[in-house]
Nucleic acid binder design. Structure first.
Length: 404
RNA sequence: GGGAGGGUAGCGAAGAGGCUAAACGCGGCAGACUGUAAAUCUGUUACCAUCGGUUUCGGCAGUUCGAAUCUGCCCCCUCCCA
């Protein structure tokens, strides 16, 4: 099966500019495509992951990826599909974030000789001269057309700053530069990028008379219509210091029934035939699929060893077996000879405030060492804490707390 | 620059001098039911605390026994006119 067909079967194609042409290019390894990543934080998150996986798929099919770090565009902020303005990042932050992104992407994409490129649009965007840009690039854009772009819809009601309005032009210019400097002929991105991407192809056509192509992937949403990759705690980071491997595994393990197959297709390298086979499995095996999904993704991101550890820990905890070898653990320090439960939970990071802790205890949501806690004034001695206590919050949160 | 309307808890949105830590909806958390799912139902959702207390309604300064609610100044947003 050729890569284009595979992408289709996996549900990875939302919109394309010229299907026959794109098919031809990527099926024969003729694409030199770029995907942009704006460094909005110091780690990639689950939302980026699908894009990276896509990149990898195309690279494996012989195409050349160009990773574009948004050292320039990150200073502007993409307003596409957003209702509110992004907070403006400092140059230092952006630089730092770019470094972090680069490291992380390197774990997935092979940057070996001639196989892929990593460039930073800060290298050209930051030095642009205003008048020159207006004359060279600005003249190619129609404000009327830009304003009618779908991606600004929400912002037309709430206000759009000129800064953000220029994002599309910067992204288009990126494509043009990559086309000129590196022979890039295609841009991939999330579906919310469609108008920005088209801006690029049009700019290239106007400036060079040549064609370039775009392909967008559907925005991965959960069955309840939310953007995938956000958990209650915020973004699901790929950096294990920001989001533990155990939690990462659990995030995928808790995927809604309706999303499992979709996620398997889009996010894993399990052959599409196999997934289509899994689709026919009896409904009672749905939890097996969730484990497979969680295992696959966690392995890709954190490596097999850590993924197995996370899986084993989860299995042990949820099956009720006493094995706490891999239970997530936090260390705390206390003053005095003993400490109240609420303080312990707070220090262990299980509750955001003592009020919340009280509520949990009142409602029977806290279990320590297999015993339900009923008294919010309960105390633990230093010796007890030294041995460590096993806390269970609600149904799914397990944590061992131990004295430092 | 002129005019109008706004800024209330994570979000949306009521409240227009004491009865308001602030209705309601969403979201979050917990409980029941389950399959570590969804749906549903129940409870809960500023902070500290046993009673009770502390700090909140864009910011600052006032008026009042008492202010989210009234006054002045400032900041920010939206719309209309230039």
């Amino acid at each position: 099966m050729k890569i284009f067909e595979e992408l289709q079967r996996r549900g990875l194609i939302a919109q394309v500019t010229d299907e026959p042409e794109i098919k031809e290019l990527i099926n024969n390894g003729g694409a030199k495509f770029y995907i942009g990543f704006d460094p909005t934080a110091d780690s990639l998150h689950a939302g980026h992951f699908m894009t990276i996986v896509l990149m990898k798929r195309l690279q494996l099919a012989g195409n050349k990826p160009i990773v574009l770090l948004g050292g320039g565009t990150g200073l502007i902020g993409d307003p596409s599909g957003r209702t509110d303005m992004r907070n403006v990042l400092s140059i230092e932050q952006v630089n730092h974030n770019c470094e972090c992104f680069k490291k992380q992407i390197g774990r997935f994409i092979d940057f070996g000789e001639g196989k892929a490129l990593c460039v930073n649009n800060g290298d050209w965007l930051r030095d642009l001269k205003y008048i020159e840009v207006l004359r060279d690039v600005g003249a190619c854009f129609s404000v009327n057309k830009m304003l009618s772009a779908e991606c600004y819809k929400q912002r037309m009601e709430r206000g759009l700053s000129f800064l953000e309005f220029n994002y599309m032009i910067m992204q288009s210019y990126d494509f043009y530069r990559l086309h000129e400097d590196y022979g890039c002929n295609m841009e991939f991105g999330g579906d919310d990028q469609w108008s920005n991407m088209l801006g690029g192809t049009e700019l290239i056509r106007k400036k060079t008379g040549k064609d370039a192509y775009c392909l967008t992937i559907p925005l991965l949403t959960t069955a309840d219509g939310k953007k995938m990759g956000k958990s209650a705690k915020g973004a699901v980071w790929l950096d294990e210091d920001k989001y533990s491997v155990y939690d990462f595994y659990q995030f995928w393990r808790n995927t809604a029934d309706a999303d499992v197959i979709k996620f398997l297709k889009v996010l894993t390298f399990i052959p599409i035939e196999e997934i289509e086979e899994m689709e026919k499995w009896d409904g009672s095996r749905i939890n097996e699929l969730k484990e497979i999904l969680a295992m696959e993704i966690t392995t890709m991101v954190h490596g097999k060893e850590k993924a197995e550890k996370a899986r084993d820990a989860a299995k042990a905890l949820f099956s009720g077996a006493g094995d706490d070898a891999n239970m997530p653990t936090s260390e705390i320090a206390i003053e005095g000879d003993d400490a109240g439960v609420l303080d312990v939970l707070l220090l262990g990071g299980l509750i955001p405030s003592k009020g919340e802790g009280r509520r949990l205890i009142e409602q029977g949501g806290i279990t320590i060492n297999e015993e339900k806690v009923t008294n919010p004034n309960m105390r633990f001695t230093k010796d007890q804490l030294k041995e460590g206590i096993k806390v269970r919050k609600g149904k799914k949160v397990f944590q061992k707390i131990i004295l430092k």
